[in-house]
Design a protein around this nucleic acid. Structure first.
Length: 851
RNA sequence: GCGAAAGUGGCGGAAUUGGCAGACGCGCUGGACUUAGGAUCCAGUGGCCCAAAGCCGUGGGGGUUCGAGUCCCCCCUUUCGCACCA
């Protein structure tokens, strides 16, 4: 009977489901716990082979852990709130809840077809009131602790999505989702005070040994910690000081002017008496109205205006002019800088443009700078010159000393500033967690009492698709009695950023059915932190930073005893596919993760309708989406799994090739037919000719185990291919020992099981064994049986002459050396030479280096 | 511009600590079986050379070493991240 995946895969999928093999009783504390987790998906409907990679590699890991006898937990859920559901409601008249439920059902079925095992008893969906009530509870806890607050602030407004965005969701001045240009708007919004945790979030990165440097650097840059000083400059004309922030207080003697952002609150007072006030105001207005994108692109050429007023440099006591500049950002620091053009490139350019004084106060070690001939600022370290008490000091001690002096004289203080800003969580959208707040004329902003949670999202809302949040137009939702005084009041109609949902879901899995508390701390402390977290690099900042923040809040609430939620993080690479080549737009390789299937048609992610012609017109056979259905129907899920893992190292981007799939198919077919061949062997005697095969078997056990530990799935599979060749070679050479061949073949099946679970279960059963069903069955290698019979010596003399000889395996270094010298008769070059080094490589060859 | 990672056959990619470069797979070539093959099996497949011997080969150039894809220096290219953050 030939290999027919269709007939065996569904049978085993059913069997695994019936036996609930992946279910874990979290109260059982036997065994070494291992909590592994794939980032929960947004249920957009169809999953393609690019998504598959993520889950397949997780499943391979999970099955391997279980085969090793570990108490591995692998839950799954749904990040089920979000914009696409709402858009589907608008364009197709389906309720977001229904759309989401349908998609969840489809994706779940797809997981099953891939043979992926999750503990579905812990399934959760963020759009379920039983989940999001704890989202609301968490919000109230943060509010109580002063970590949630409402403020009017300039926020990022996306005209495409008709909602505000967190800073993290703005990429290059555009909306991360729809690429609309983001505008600044002043709005009253809810924030989480993540900046309170900036220092801990930064410092915690050092403890994450098993995260890639790439992700850690991205987080570190985002948090943007910088150490410096706030210094006050007196401005007599307005009768108050203006505070600046600098990381280089040692250069303060070179501060020859000051620059404010046009948004700085003191600007109106400063320019009140200016003869060119109107012009300055017009210019400020222009800069302010620019989107960040425009401002940044235009501001590579700097622009500014002189206010007509002066500040006093507190160290030189000189009057320095106060300018406005488009390159000074209102949100960072104090929105005001002291300009040291000799030692800051931006200040240098500004000074050259407007003819302002450039004064050297730091001298590099081996040259002296002359401001008239400088072509760029000297921003490196050096020695302070013409700088009062710090003159002659090197930069580092100079910073120390001047900072102390500034503090002592009461003109400023040492400060640590962060680029990170508070997390804006309000969204003017329907499909999200309602913010549990009521606005009462009498009592003000009133939190909904915990015993009234959840504030449920009403289901019967009209979706017009026209501006604004449909919730705001629903009187039955908005009109409410004030929980405090009982008078008529209004509900908050904004919902929470869906990143709130995903910032703690990994904890909830442990207690996903608990309606009395957010989770059971005792169990959570046993199972968390997550040992292995798997997901895409696109979450390097947003999701992971928020999750780290919320975990620290939970820690400070004494609900959990850890601060970092994810011990190991693995970011898999994307799968790309050669698509339709359109010479006009050169659309060739497309990352599959950038494509969504909607009604079976491919769309570029984040776009709504405009790319239909460009992409959607392409026929499926030519286009770049590989739907797993077709693939599975033809080759089976095991083939897709093996190919996906074999294609490239899992952290790298990989190019999908339809021809390549066939290699995985041939391999599995060969494994299938090998079983039939082994079964026909009759001899139960041991066969000396099987040594090579047995050795290969044990070497493969060792190497596959090692490779799985390191996520090297691609080479693990190639090792298994080699083992299958070794068995085939043994049979082809007339090997007759059924027991020897069975040892090798059964090991092959076990080692292959995490990658190709269906075929291996089937073949295992055919051999008369009980099915694996995730029992502990991982083989152990016998290192004695791994050793080669003979070692080849390669003798090099001055790297030129060579001779070879063979010695029995297992010799140690000194034996090898003396043996080699005894053989020097047959290797005449060795006579009278001195052995300088012997390299002993188990299982390979021995080099003897001679002079 | 700054920071990080990476450059190996026609392609995806292998190569514990420096130790037989190109494992494994695709593709290709030849053959077998076939009415047929886009199915299956066998053999070959880095380059130069009819072949052998030999020589050359891991982006380029230097260096260390008996020995370098691997270590050090310089350069080039690609990808990713950051980009007026004072």
């Amino acid at each position: 009977m030939s290999y027919d995946p269709a007939s065996i895969e569904s049978r085993w999928q059913k069997r695994w489901a019936e036996a609930r093999v992946a279910e874990v009783d979290v109260r059982n504390d036997e065994g070494e716990k291992y909590y592994m987790l794939n980032m929960f998906p947004y249920p957009s409907g169809d999953l393609h082979v690019g998504h598959g990679r993520n889950y397949i590699l997780g499943d391979a890991l999970f099955r391997w852990l279980r085969m090793q006898g570990r108490a591995a937990l692998n839950p799954m859920g749904w990040d089920a709130f979000g914009l696409p559901a709402e858009n589907a409601a608008i364009t197709r008249g389906i309720h977001p809840g229904e759309w989401t439920r349908n998609n969840i059902a489809r994706e779940k079925a797809q997981f099953e077809r891939w043979g992926i095992l999750y503990d579905w008893s812990k399934e959760l969906a963020s759009c379920d009131p039983r989940y999001y009530r704890w989202n609301q509870w968490l919000f109230l806890q943060l509010l109580e602790r002063g970590l949630a607050y409402r403020a009017k602030a300039p926020v990022n407004w996306c005209p495409g999505c008709q909602t505000v965005l967190a800073n993290e969701q703005v990429v290059d001045g555009r909306c991360e989702r729809c690429s609309s240009e983001v505008k600044q708007k002043d709005l009253e919004q809810w924030f989480f005070r993540i900046t309170e945790y900036a220092d801990r979030l930064d410092a915690g990165l050092d403890t994450l040994e098993h995260w890639s440097d790439k992700v850690k650097v991205m987080q570190r840059n985002w948090i943007g910690r910088s150490v410096g000083a706030d210094v006050r400059f007196a401005v007599p004309a307005i009768g108050r000081d203006i505070t600046i922030f600098t990381t280089r207080p040692d250069t303060i003697y070179g501060a020859t002017f000051m620059v404010l952002a046009p948004e700085h609150p003191d600007v109106p007072a400063l320019i009140r008496d200016s003869p060119v006030r109107e012009e300055i105001e017009q210019w400020s207005e222009k800069v302010r109205n620019q989107t960040n994108l425009e401002r940044q692109s235009e501001a590579s050429g700097k622009e500014g205006r002189f206010t007509g007023q002066f500040a006093i440099n507190p160290l030189t006591n000189e009057e320095i002019p106060i300018w406005l500049g488009n390159f000074v950002l209102p949100q960072y620091g104090t929105g005001a800088i002291m300009s040291v053009p000799a030692h800051d490139q931006r200040d240098f350019e500004f000074a050259r443009q407007y003819g302002l004084e450039i004064r050297v106060v730091v001298s590099p070690e081996e040259e002296s700078l002359d401001s008239t001939f400088m072509e760029a600022a000297w921003t490196g370290d050096g020695f302070s010159v013409a700088s009062g008490s710090i003159t002659g000091l090197a930069t580092m001690p100079a910073i120390e000393q001047i900072s102390d002096e500034i503090e002592k004289r009461g003109i400023g203080k040492k400060t640590v500033r962060y680029r990170l800003r508070d997390w804006l969580i309000s969204r003017q959208r329907y499909w999200g967690t309602p913010i549990p707040i009521v606005y009462c004329e009498k009592c003000g902003t009133v939190p909904v009492p915990v015993d009234q949670l959840p504030v449920e999202l009403p289901l019967d809302v009209p979706f017009t698709g026209r501006e604004g949040n449909p919730l705001a137009k629903m009187d039955s939702f908005v009109q409410v009695a004030c929980p405090r005084c009982g008078d008529a009041a209004r509900r908050e109609t904004d919902t929470m950023d869906t990143f709130v949902d995903s910032s703690w879901y990994f904890v909830r899995y442990i207690s996903s059915h608990d309606d009395d508390q957010i989770f059971d701390s005792k169990l959570v402390n046993r199972w968390l932190p997550v040992d292995q977290y798997i997901g895409g690099i696109e979450h390097a900042i947003l999701h992971l930073l928020y999750a780290r923040f919320v975990t620290r809040v939970l820690h400070d609430m004494r609900l959990v005893n850890f601060e970092e939620p994810f011990t190991r993080l693995f970011n898999q690479g994307m799968i790309t596919k050669e698509g339709y080549r359109d010479p006009s737009n050169n659309l060739a390789w497309v990352a599959l993760d950038e494509v969504e299937l909607r009604d079976g048609l491919p769309f570029r992610k984040g776009t709504e309708l405009e790319l239909v012609q460009e992409i959607g017109k392409m026929s499926k056979s030519r286009f770049n989406v590989v739907p797993p259905d077709e693939l599975i129907a033809r080759y089976g899920a095991d083939t897709e799994r093996v190919y996906t893992l074999f294609i490239a190292p899992p952290d790298k981007e990989a190019a999908w090739s339809d021809e390549g799939v066939i290699g995985a198919w041939r391999f599995l077919s060969r494994v299938w037919s090998l079983g039939e061949q082994v079964a026909t062997l009759r001899s139960d005697e041991e066969d000396p000719a099987s040594v090579k095969m047995i050795r290969k078997t044990h070497q493969t056990i060792a190497s596959v185990t090692r490779k799985l530990e390191r996520f090297e799935f691609n080479t693990a599979i190639s090792s298994l291919m080699e083992l299958s060749h070794a068995i085939a070679d043994y049979l082809a050479a007339g090997g007759s020992s059924r027991s020897d061949a069975t040892v090798a073949y059964e090991s092959l099946l076990k080692l292959l099981h995490p990658f190709a679970p269906h075929i291996t279960e089937e073949l295992w059963e055919k051999l008369g064994h009980e099915p694996f069903l995730l029992t502990s069955s991982w083989p152990a290698a016998d290192s004695e049986l791994m050793k080669d019979e003979v070692l080849t010596f390669v003798v090099q003399i001055n790297g030129k002459l060579r001779a070879q000889m063979e010695l029995p395996a297992g010799v140690d270094e000194s034996t090898a050396t003396s043996e080699a010298l005894q053989h020097s008769k047959v290797i005449p070059h060795l006579e009278g030479k001195q052995v300088v080094k012997t390299i002993y490589v188990p299982g390979k060859l021995v080099n003897l280096v001679v002079r």
